[in-house]
Amino acid sequence: MNGFAPFLKKEFTESKRTYRAAIMLIVMLFFGIIGPLAAKFLPQMLEMLMPDNISAEDMGVLNLFMRDPSALDAWAQYFNNMSQIGIMMIAIMFSGALASEAGKGTLIPLLARGLSRPAAVVAKFVCQASLWTLFYAAAAAVTWGLTSALFPAQGYLTPQLFFSHFGLWLFGIFVLALTLFMSAILKNVIMVLLSMVGSWFVMAVVTSVYPSSARYNPLTLSTSATNIAATNQPGFYLPAVLITAALAAASLLAAVFAFKKRAL
């Protein structure tokens, strides 16, 4: 692991100077702010925009959407944005991590002076995982603060909610590790992104063909975060958590070994 510390520092500098960290932070904080605001004020806005001469029948349908919003709606908005755009964003942002360094040859002078390849791979993962963890926590904290201000006296800090957050965060870690592995074996960013879309597709197909497998499927942690927060037994989804953690570790390990073998 020679050269780990200086290379990790370089990774953080890179995230800062290429504005990657800033973009991530802004987008994720935006999700943190918009979730509670949308939950609180979207129904009111809809009401204002509604035509006056609405039939009783239509009103019945609309009322379904316009029931009194709750704290859970705020979290639902947050989970929606984070599990779709948030996860996609980190996959896109870090897809070139190893592929473009290997393609351009920027690693060569550093490897030639003794940087170990596993150190480079692990440093990249540590940097990405730190940014994700830090910004996720910040976005969740903002959502929590706004939610408690907009929906006072509602039970919004349940163990189930924590489990949902943990699951989505872990899914993000898994996506980072898998992206890193794809980036270690594939030639360019486009191929890495295609492989990520492919992986997502496989997980989605498995869920729809075998609905009962959902409790084992990593994708569940992302797509069903709101359901998990609303359910009474989050422990039901524990297998998915364990499998996701194992897959993340395996992806990271595979990335290290694959990159060791890559001709540069």
Binding site: G3, F7, T13, R17, G105, T106, L110, R113, G114
Partner: peptide, 22 residues
């Protein structure tokens, strides 16, 4: 064709190289 990290200044790159070399 040496490729460097474009966002760095020359002495920052040298510092990285030096640190990697220990």
């Amino acid at each position: 064709v040496p490729e460097f990290y474009g966002y760095m200044r020359p002495q920052e790159y040298m510092a990285l190289c030096g640190a990697v070399s220990g």
